[in-house]
């Protein structure tokens, strides 16, 4: 489904701030893969995700989704394939617009907007059912502006929007990191439910090792712009946090220096 082939990305090349964020990285995702991504700060997790989403062009390499080479496509064209949820709950929705207006926009992800009326009668019932499944009471607040919602509610709504028309690829960039533990758990639960219902090919960055082990069928760990560890299936299922730490130390030659990641 997703083929990332030998991509590299260097920020501020030739300056004192030069940062080789991705180094000749390759990654293949099969259809229906749910991959969790972990790694310390500056490992290149977000750069990988933003490269796939097209936030910036890569220096070299190719990115192919569902057989289409999207390497040269701008961000908005790639939206046809990709649904995204960001770390910042404010980023995924338009605060000054109603819940149903946000959903209406999301229901046309990747399609050219037309002069047709945006809020369609026939969508209302469908939106209502989907919102009800979030179990946050949002189905009765479809005319409320999104800015009135809490961070967790907004993140759940963004998740719903990103998956409204099943995307070829779902990118989750630490989408629960800004939420309190209870809300994060709820959003993760919803993520699991939606991803498995539609068998979405998913890439989920997390800071939390426990979550990385609990969710998905495959786990990759990044370090210095490379994929250090890539485990799938039973190998991943039997993995524990101490195993992961030992593997990391062995592969990278140094100890993991990220407290936040260990806390899970």
């Amino acid at each position: 489904m997703l083929r990332v082939e030998n991509i590299s990305k260097t920020f501020h090349p030739g300056t004192i701030n030069e940062k080789k964020a991705l180094q000749d990285l390759s990654l293949h995702l099969n259809s229906g893969d749910f991959v969790t991504v972990i790694g310390g700060n500056g490992a290149g997790k977000s750069t990988l995700m933003n490269s796939i989403a097209g936030v910036f062009p890569v220096d070299k390499g190719r990115i192919i989704i569902d057989g289409d080479d999207i390497t040269k496509q701008p961000e908005h064209k790639r939206a046809k394939y990709i649904g995204r949820v960001f770390q910042d709950p404010m980023m995924g929705t338009a605060a000054g617009m109603m819940i149903e207006e946000n959903l209406a926009i999301a229901s046309r992800r990747g399609k050219m907007p037309t002069f047709a009326w945006s809020s369609k009668e026939e969508d209302q019932e469908r939106f209502k059912i989907l919102l009800k499944e979030l179990d946050l009471g949002l189905e009765d607040r479809m005319s409320d502006k999104v800015g009135l919602l809490s961070g967790g509610q907004r993140q759940a709504l963004t998740l719903l929007m990103a998956t409204l028309n099943q995307p070829k690829l779902l990118l989750l960039d630490e989408h629960t990191a800004a939420l309190d533990p209870k809300t994060a758990e709820k959003v993760l639960g919803l993520t699991q439910k939606i991803v498995s219902r539609y068998h979405l090919t998913t890439l989920m960055i997390t800071h939390n090792m426990r979550d990385a082990l609990r969710f998905g069928n495959r786990l990759i760990m990044m370090h210095n712009g490379r994929i250090l560890i890539d485990l799938a299936g039973r190998e991943k299922d039997n993995l524990t946090i101490p195993d992961l730490l030992a593997m990391f130390e062995k592969a990278s030659g140094n100890e993991l220096d990220n407290d936040r990641m260990l806390l899970g």
């Binding site: 989403a53 961000e75 908005h76 064209k77 939206a79 046809k80 990709i82 995204r84 960001f86 404010m90 980023m91 995924g92 929705t93 338009a94 605060a95 926009i105 999301a106 046309r108 992800r109 990747g110 399609k111 929007m161 990103a162």
Partner: peptide, 9 residues
């Protein structure tokens, strides 16, 4: 939110 609407294509 420019980021949001770009992500919607």
């Amino acid at each position: 939110n420019q980021q949001m609407i770009r992500a919607q294509g």
